[in-house]
């Protein structure tokens, strides 16, 4: 008798546990704390920054990471065809007062990138052209915009997927920069 009761309650308990798990996940989705779009942590953190693309947008914008060794750098993957990339330019411009910001135009045409910088402003000290997306694979990006913070030794300390808004600077990038000091 008690055993048979048990045979009912065990599956019921398992089902209930499943329901609780599903509810937690659903609650997270509704409140926005759990997003199916969230990108897993980059495995490149703590590793030396991979190579940038081979071609720059112009000779003045051809500064390499090695040239900025000794100071923090933000490498920002962007594209003229990417809408959120437009929204992050003002925040990047503010960030550029403290940190060297380097742009990598991901799968973009040089003329389009130039027009983009003219329309939305240019916070970048260097702009490299990743025409075929190979640099994107080297850096393990999922899409644009995506940004990497590199310390003075040339190691990646932070990856942010999605646009850099001012809130991202205050909540994520500035604390990381403070830790580097």
């Amino acid at each position: 008798m008690t055993r048979q009761r048990l045979m009912f309650f065990i599956p019921a308990a398992v089902f209930l546990a499943f329901l609780v798990m599903a509810s937690v996940a659903l609650y997270g989705t509704i409140t926005g704390s759990r997003s199916p779009d969230q990108v897993p942590q980059s495995v490149l953190i703590g590793r030396p920054a991979p190579d940038l693309p081979e071609h720059a947008l112009s000779d003045e914008l051809a500064k390499t990471l090695a040239q900025f060794r000794g100071q923090p750098v933000l490498v920002n993957f962007m594209a003229s065809w990417c809408i959120p990339c437009r929204a992050e330019i003002p925040a990047l411009d503010v960030l550029a007062e403290d940190v060297v910001v380097i742009g990598v135009a991901y799968k973009d045409k040089a003329a389009d990138t130039r027009a983009f910088l003219a329309d939305y402003g240019n916070p970048y000290q260097a702009v490299w052209m990743d025409d075929d997306g190979r640099a994107g694979i080297r850096w393990g990006i999922y899409g644009v915009p995506e940004s990497f913070l590199i310390d003075k030794h040339g190691r990646i300390v932070l990856r942010h997927a999605g646009p850099v808004f001012k809130s991202v600077i205050t909540d994520v990038i500035t604390p990381a920069l403070d830790q580097l000091k």
């Binding site: 437009r86 929204a87 330019i89 003002p90 411009d93 003219a118 329309d119 939305y120 402003g121 240019n122 916070p123």
Partner: peptide
């Protein structure tokens, strides 16, 4: 006008 052209975003040049 610049902001309107950028879909309502107050871009750096507009600022």
């Amino acid at each position: 006008a610049i902001s309107r052209d950028s879909g309502g975003m107050v871009t750096l040049p507009a600022r």
